[in-house]
Amino acid sequence: MISLYLYMNLPDIIPIQFGITLIPSNWGSKATIFIFPIVLLLVPTFMSKKTINSQEKSITGRIATEIIMLIVLAVILIMMIGAYYLYFKMI
């Protein structure tokens, strides 16, 4: 929902990459704000318990795979929050 709201209010070109000093170093289309939400929808689809259980037979392997999946989702979520924070900080 945040992405849809932002899409309506963003200019056509937005910063998509920031340097160490948090100064924009690359610019792109405003449609790039949909990358994080799409990834957050696709990753769980491919990492579902049904898929994991069909590929991994040992309980240790399944638990390790689920932990890795949760870490990946957490990193993506943190990146998305950081990107929105930087955008609102620039306004």
Rank of each mutant, 00 (worst) to 15 (best):
M1E: 05
I2E: 09
S3G: 10
L4N: 11
Y5S: 06
Y5V: 05
L6E: 03
L6I: 07
L6F: 11
Y7R: 04
Y7V: 04
M8I: 09
N9R: 07
N9I: 03
P11V: 03
P11D: 02
P11Q: 02
P11K: 13
P11I: 02
D12S: 01
D12F: 02
D12C: 00
D12W: 01
D12A: 01
I13D: 03
I13L: 06
I14S: 03
I14E: 02
I14N: 02
P15R: 01
P15C: 00
P15G: 01
Q17N: 04
F18G: 02
G19E: 01
G19D: 00
I20D: 00
I20H: 00
I20L: 00
I20F: 01
T21K: 07
T21G: 01
L22A: 04
L22E: 05
I23C: 04
I23P: 01
P24S: 05
P24T: 04
S25L: 02
S25F: 00
S25C: 01
S25A: 00
S29I: 00
A31F: 11
A31M: 03
T32F: 05
T32K: 03
I33K: 00
F34I: 10
F34E: 09
I35Y: 10
I35C: 06
F36K: 05
F36G: 03
F36H: 04
P37G: 06
P37R: 06
V39A: 15
V39E: 07
V39L: 14
L40V: 15
L40H: 15
L40C: 13
L41N: 15
L41K: 15
L42A: 14
L42G: 12
L42P: 11
V43H: 10
T45N: 13
T45E: 08
T45K: 15
F46T: 11
K49C: 08
K50L: 13
T51E: 04
I52W: 05
N53T: 09
S54P: 02
E56V: 14
E56F: 10
E56K: 06
K57W: 12
K57F: 12
K57D: 15
T60S: 13
G61P: 15
G61A: 14
R62G: 11
R62M: 10
R62V: 04
A64F: 13
A64S: 14
A64E: 09
T65D: 10
E66F: 08
I67L: 07
I67K: 05
I67R: 06
I68L: 12
I68Q: 09
I68V: 15
M69G: 13
M69R: 09
M69W: 11
L70K: 07
L70F: 11
L70T: 07
I71P: 14
I71F: 14
I71W: 12
V72Q: 13
L73G: 09
A74V: 08
A74F: 05
A74N: 11
A74G: 08
V75T: 12
V75Y: 11
V75D: 09
V75G: 05
I76D: 07
I76E: 10
I76W: 11
I76V: 13
I76A: 12
I76R: 08
M80D: 15
M80K: 10
I81P: 05
I81L: 05
I81G: 07
Y84F: 12
Y85M: 14
Y85L: 13
L86H: 09
Y87S: 09
Y87A: 09
F88T: 12
F88V: 15
